[in-house]
Amino acid sequence: MSGGAEDDFGAFVAARATTLLRLAHLACGDRAEAEDLLQTALERTYRNWNKVRHDSPEPYVRRVIVNTAISRARRRAILRMIPVRVLPDTPARSDDVDLREVLMDALRALPPRQRAVVVLRFWEDLSEQQTAQVLGCAIGTVKSQCSRALAKLRAALGEESVEGVIGHGRA
């Protein structure tokens, strides 16, 4: 890679690393694994930088993060069942100090594809079409996965908590 291309890549990483790390953390639910996911995504992006840099590189990196998170989750599921902490019987309130932890537990309990859809749609604020492009699927798949994920989150957290965290009218 030429010096200018390396400088471009370095500038991209410096500008977007925090946002991409947050996406990785939400996609996998673990800080250490999120760092590893981001490193893997940036490595793959670096290898393809000459192809990717002229387009918008961020969607490419997002797609690598989400696909890698899904692949790793599937691999772990094949090897062993992932234990999930039991969620409280009472719905969490938005003013509850533990809401973030409860929400992360509920996200971890979702299947990888549903978790990816929720993270891309509501935390990354991507449209259904953009989410479908990142995941390489149809818009209808995004809609159905989102609907199922929100139903599971509502069952785990309670209707008011989900609406308070994710927002109204975006299902």
Score class of each variant (00 low, 15 high):
V97T: 10
I70C: 10
V97F: 15
V97D: 12
A106M: 06
V86C: 08
I82P: 05
R74W: 09
L79E: 13
T90V: 12
D96K: 13
V64D: 05
L99E: 02
L107Y: 07
A69C: 09
R76P: 03
D96S: 13
L110P: 00
Q114W: 03
R80K: 08
R100N: 11
D98F: 05
E124Y: 02
L110S: 00
L99V: 14
M104T: 09
L107T: 04
R72F: 07
E124C: 12
M104E: 11
V102G: 01
R108E: 05
F122V: 11
A92L: 10
T90K: 06
R85L: 15
Q114N: 13
N67E: 08
I82L: 11
I82F: 13
I65Y: 01
A106F: 04
V66E: 01
R63L: 07
V117Y: 00
D89H: 08
V66K: 00
E101Q: 12
R85K: 15
R80L: 05
W123H: 13
L107F: 11
V66D: 01
L107R: 05
V86S: 12
P88F: 10
A116R: 02
R72T: 02
V86N: 10
N67H: 14
F122E: 06
V102Q: 08
P88Y: 08
I70V: 14
D89V: 01
A77H: 07
Q114H: 11
P112Y: 13
R113A: 05
R121Y: 10
A69K: 01
V102L: 13
A116Q: 04
R76N: 09
D98C: 14
P91F: 00
M81I: 12
A73Q: 03
V102S: 01
R115A: 00
R121M: 15
V66R: 00
V118Y: 01
V86L: 13
E124Q: 14
T90C: 05
V117G: 00
R76I: 06
D125C: 09
R85Q: 14
A73F: 04
V118M: 08
L110T: 05
A109G: 15
V119L: 12
V97Q: 14
R93E: 08
A73G: 07
L120M: 13
A109H: 07
R121S: 09
I82V: 15
A109C: 09
S94M: 15
M81Q: 15
L107S: 01
R74V: 05
A69F: 04
V118L: 10
